[in-house]
């Protein structure tokens, strides 16, 4: 069993998450909070919000990673213990969102990952959770996917426009 699989098994019933806002519009952030409240109650899965990345098993990354926040995002992720599991939330976190090419954003997690690698910070597993904003259910689904409890539905498909 690999280290990652072991770690995933260990946190299975108590996942501590740290919410990292990298310049998001707030919609995803309040949906993250919403997931904690009675209707969705992620504590059913042992998910608990913690106040420091040093305590966190998973980072919930929202926002397009603005230039101002970039150094702080890198620092927060660096502070996280291995394995570093990240949930990139919302269309901003996944692909940079509506401002993916603006002068003051980095443009999505892919670019951040490159910057992190250049700085010697390795990420062990990422789950991309699209949505604008992400529904609380989508966040739950993303966490379950991270743990391997549900099957991934999205798959790359490329089809030819057919005649008919």
């Amino acid at each position: 069993m690999s280290n990652l699989a072991k770690a995933l098994k260990a946190i299975r019933k108590s996942i501590w998450v740290y919410h990292l806002n990298s310049g998001s519009c707030n919609a995803c952030d309040i949906e993250v909070l919403d997931a904690l409240t009675p209707y969705f109650d992620v504590e059913r899965f042992g998910v608990k919000l913690v106040g420091s990345p040093r305590h966190a098993d998973v980072i919930l990354l929202t926002g397009p990673i603005t230039r101002e926040s970039l150094p702080k995002v890198v620092r927060a992720i660096r502070a996280m213990p291995r394995p570093r599991l990240i949930l990139a939330l919302g269309s901003c976190g996944v692909g940079g969102g509506i401002w993916w090419d603006s002068y003051s954003t980095t443009g999505g997690f892919k670019k951040l990952e490159d910057i992190l690698r250049e700085n010697g910070v390795e990420i062990d597993r990422v789950v991309y959770v699209p949505g604008c904003p992400v529904r609380p259910e989508a966040i739950i689904y993303g966490i379950l996917l991270l743990l391997g409890a549900v099957e991934q539905k999205s798959k790359r498909v490329e089809v030819y426009a057919s005649e008919s």
């Binding site: 310049g23 519009c25 603005t66 702080k72 509506i98 401002w99 090419d101 603006s102 003051s104």
Partner: peptide
């Protein structure tokens, strides 16, 4: 201003039209 995303500039950039700005 951690959340400065350059919205006002984007709205006047060629990527956007009057119709798209409400979503921005």
């Amino acid at each position: 201003f951690h959340v400065h995303r350059g919205i006002e500039k984007l709205a006047e950039s060629p990527r956007f039209t009057y119709k798209q700005v409400p979503f921005l």
